[in-house]
Design a protein around this nucleic acid. Structure first.
Lengths: 153, 153
DNA sequence: TTGATATAGTTAGATGCCTAACTATATCAA
DNA sequence: TTGATATAGTTAGGCATCTAACTATATCAA
């Protein structure tokens, strides 16, 4: 790849990351949440109670990030934590009734975020974009996994 | 847009942002840099001496982020700062000889980053991807600008 | 000329993410 | 059974980014 292409690609990805995160934070703030918390809530809604290790894998972030996020969600009353009966090292997290009450608003916010994100597209179809982004996300997962010998699975 | 599409889009963008940033940080660490600094160095290389306000606009981040990044680059000896002769509020930043000496390695690192990023694509052509990402970046810029009344230009 | 407003930059403080280092528990082979 | 190793979670500390609030200088209209 030549430098011009590389520059355009990296620059677009930096912009996209920062701007989408900013828009997401704005949507979530309206619900009293901050970024990252939504991925845990959605995962718990979809899968039911999960250990923190499972949440880390699902959210694609490291255990300390989960520790901190779960503590904040617990303080908000949106999740509860209890020790696993099967593995005494593990902590199981689950949505509270209050947490479940947030789901509807969260879905709406997430749709609104996605619509704002693509509202200004001028020459790309949304379905094509989603397809390309899923492919890219998978490629980047592979590249990151190769980076870190701990994550060889 | 339905929820499934919105979820797929937002999730892919979150993953892409985090993973590309991680890979970028790894490349930059090899050069003794951290993330964000490269965008300032590249802008100074391309445009010549710039005020911090110009750098903020070019990098797409807020003035305090520039203050901090420029201070670190100055401590590393890669840029120098001097008051503008035209506007006594402004500070002009420029690359030092040591900063210029980094450019070659930085270009190589940026090409390597882009190649790792797309290495695992299975069904998307690189040129199509870059085109779609540029379109998306522009769309997100518009959406963010609309968000913040201060940035009405 | 002055007074209101806008702009350049900094400081302070917050957030989410990371790595490194640690404790406690599990697992598996000798 | 025991000893090495792997895994679950936490704590401490660092990074880039943000917003809010501030100082100093510019600009422009009354």
């Amino acid at each position: 790849m030549d430098y011009e292409q590389a520059y355009a690609l990296n620059r677009a990805l930096r912009t996209i990351g920062m701007r989408h995160r900013l828009l997401a934070a704005t949507e979530l703030n309206r619900l009293g949440l901050s970024i990252g918390q939504e991925s845990l809530i959605m995962e718990l809604a979809k899968q039911g109670p999960r250990t923190q290790a499972q949440l880390a894998t699902a959210a694609g972030c490291e255990p300390p990030t989960i520790t901190s996020a779960v503590q904040k969600l617990e303080a908000l009353g949106l999740v509860s934590r209890h020790p696993s009966t099967e593995d005494r090292r593990a902590t199981v997290v689950e949505l509270t009734t209050e947490g479940e009450a947030l789901l509807e608003g969260l879905s709406a916010a997430w749709i609104h975020l996605a619509e704002s994100t693509v509202a200004g597209l001028s020459r790309t179809r949304v379905e094509d974009l989603i397809e390309a982004l899923a492919d890219l996300a998978a490629s980047l997962e592979t590249a990151s996994r190769d980076l870190d010998p701990r994550r060889l699975t």
